[in-house]
Design a protein around this nucleic acid. Structure first.
Length: 591
RNA sequence: CGGGGUGUAGCGCAGCCCGGUAGCGCACCUGAAUGGGGUUCAGGUGGUCGCAGGUUCAAAUCCUGUCACCCCGACCA
């Protein structure tokens, strides 16, 4: 590829709306241009990187016996209505209508379509397991696209689906995918880890996400450096928190209030005025008690039914856990009007005591045994003190709904959890029969009995993986591509002066390297050295061969590895192609 | 969806309060010099001032509407 004849529009200035390194560099390196909010054009250099990642994905999936197919972008509404996701998925599902007034969606994921295909063809356990994938453009109408290709509306995804006769077979595929994903991300040069994840809107029981550790990541990971436990913040569990019961020395009371129970358990509920104090922190300060001894009571509405949710005043509810537990089509916080009609009081003063009817109350397990607690009185400007949850709210169900935070005890070993940020580049799910059951995808087993297919699904964000690689491999000068996914392996930089020799030698090296099968960029532009070097630093091709008058006088050219950041190594012109060929084989892992 | 902001040349911006023939830097084109880290000089190309309506002798500028984009937030009682 000759620079003068290709399309690599680099930018000297940084576009003002690019906030993260990958976005900024993809724009500046001429890989990417925005067409519309969250919608991007991938220019030749960007497309090359995408193809590199796709190739690695294809190679590794071939190793585990997955077969590639291609599914449509446009999905008929009826298919999504079968699984109720037409209603559940929400506004992220981009809907449109055709000329006959039929409704469609742009596919954000393809469980419905693949299940439809498979249910039409698979009749027997003899046809199982099936392991299919595609690499295709997905569309999700993100509420707020940002960070370039890290959170865009249109993106390229590899999505795979497996179909099984039983759980054991699903487990084998799931494990194979976990291994394949680890190889894929390692080959892409990423520092990543697999963490336990919530299965969210996709569904299923078991899921792991592959996280690329990066400060710009939008996902929070909680991990234990003592035992290796790691989970997304949506999924993370914690060991028992230190008790905060009254008279127990605050956080010192290890036995969840048992020691102090005699004393505090006898305390009566007492109504106190808390004018205008709606938040747990304000109430605690006003009453002079630790925030941890106040209890928040949140009112949610799940498919039209109110559900009260309680956590400690200083903690937050994990809605992913709540949604997962309730298994409702829609879960949302109640409006102020609904709060008034369900509790009798205004927003900000809700509590679990004296609620009309017998509403469902879910409480964080850390509240088991809570005594001497402060809760809302379901009346304006009033709270109750001295509450004993098990005495005063006997119907409370204890369910883990806690948003775990850094410093909480590890659920496995009790050590302190740490928080870090990551970019989710892949996720694997054991779906079970969620889709196959809803869509009637069945097969006949050995005994002739009709059974529902067991499914798994496995995604990799291709474009996001590219951005994540840049997040991890760049410096102030530009991108430093890992060789396996670099758009090209070598950039030949002749420093053209009046003397035609550097360009002539550059051409020879360029031809020679291409003959050996390498992808080479020849910077044949009539630009000054500074411009060429700056652009080379920016686009980050792993190996750089500089041909200048200075070296040629002694028959030498200059080689720099690590996208030009490495030390210069002078090579005789004659052996340069062979030497570089050997170095490239080594770097690319080709024997 | 709520709040804030911005739309003026390919990119980054000024001009807008205080209406009067649209400007700067980079990029681009031409020429010359230069030639190992974004060089220099000279000359040039390029803009219905997001769109629509209104006020006015006159609108990038004032008013109304609209669209797009960006940032923050989206209910933790």
């Amino acid at each position: 590829m000759r620079w003068s004849r290709t399309f690599i529009p680099t930018l000297k200035e940084t576009p003002s709306d690019a906030e993260v390194a990958s976005h900024r560099l993809m724009l500046r390196a001429g890989m990417l241009r925005k067409l519309s909010s969250g919608i991007y054009c991938h220019l030749p250099l960007g497309q090359r990187v995408i193809q590199k990642v796709e190739r690695i994905v294809r190679e590794e999936l071939a190793r585990i016996g997955a077969e590639e197919l291609l599914l449509p972008v446009l999905h008929p509404a009826e298919l999504w209505q079968e699984t109720r996701r037409w209603d559940i998925y929400g506004p992220e599902l981009m809907r449109l209508t055709d000329r006959h007034d039929r409704q469609f969606a742009l596919g954000p994921t393809h469980e419905e379509v693949i299940t439809d295909v498979v249910r039409g063809e698979v009749r027997s356990y003899r046809q199982l397991p099936l392991n299919l994938y595609q690499i295709q453009t997905k569309f999700r109408d993100e509420i707020r696209p940002r960070f370039g290709v890290l959170r865009s509306r249109e993106f390229i995804m590899k999505d795979a689906y497996s179909f099984h006769a039983d759980e054991a077979s699903l487990g084998e595929a799931y494990d194979a995918y976990r291994e394949a994903y680890s190889r894929i991300f390692a080959r892409c040069g990423l520092d990543f880890r697999a963490v336990l994840a919530d299965s969210g809107a996709i569904g299923g029981a078991v899921s792991e996400e592959f996280m690329v550790l990066a400060s710009s990541g939008e996902s929070e990971v909680l991990s234990c450096c003592s035992c290796g436990y790691a989970a997304t913040s949506e999924k993370a569990a914690a060991g028992a928190l230190a008790s905060a019961n009254a008279g127990a020395g605050g956080a010192q009371a290890g036995a969840v209030g048992e020691a102090s129970g005699q004393r505090d358990g006898q305390r009566d509920l007492r109504r106190v005025d808390t004018p205008g104090k709606t938040s747990a922190a304000e109430v605690a300060e006003f009453l002079g008690v630790p925030v941890a001894r106040t209890l928040k009571t949140l009112v949610y509405v799940a498919d039209g039914t109110p559900v009260f949710v309680m956590v400690r005043g200083d903690r937050e509810v994990n809605e992913a856990k709540l949604f997962g537990h309730l298994q409702a089509a829609t879960v949302r916080l109640a409006t102020p009007e609904e709060i008034r009609s369900e509790t009798g009081g205004p927003l900000g003063f809700s509590g679990p005591v004296g609620l009309p009817g017998m509403p469902r109350i879910l409480a964080d397990p850390n509240l088991r045994g809570a005594r001497g607690s402060v809760v809302g009185a379901n009346a304006a400007d009033a709270h109750l003190t001295g509450m004993d949850l098990e005495r005063d709210v006997p119907q409370a169900e204890f369910v883990d709904l806690l948003q775990v935070a850094a410093g909480d005890p590890c659920p496995r070993c009790g050590a302190s959890l740490e928080s870090s940020r990551g970019i989710e580049v892949g996720q694997i799910f054991k779906l079970g029969d969620k889709y196959s059951k809803a869509m009637g995808a069945t097969f006949l087993d050995e005994s002739g009995a009709q059974r529902t297919l067991i499914m798994g699904c496995y995604g990799i964000g291709i474009t996001r993986t590219v951005a994540a690689a840049i997040e991890q491999h760049h410096d102030e000068r530009g991108i430093r591509w890992p060789p396996a996914i670099a758009p090209m392996q070598v950039e030949v930089v002749p420093l053209a002066a009046r003397d035609p020799a550097p360009m002539r030698v550059g051409e020879e090296l360029y031809e020679g390297l291409m003959e050996r099968g390498w992808e080479v960029l020849l910077d044949d532009r009539d630009e000054r050295p500074g411009v060429k070097f700056a652009d080379a630093d920016l686009i980050g091709i792993p190996f750089r061969l500089v041909v200048g008058e200075r070296g040629l006088k002694n028959g030498m050219v200059e080689l720099r590895a690590d996208a030009g950041r490495g030390d210069a190594e002078t090579l005789p012109v004659d052996g340069a192609v062979a030497t570089l060929d050997a170095r490239l084989r080594q770097a690319m892992g080709r024997a």
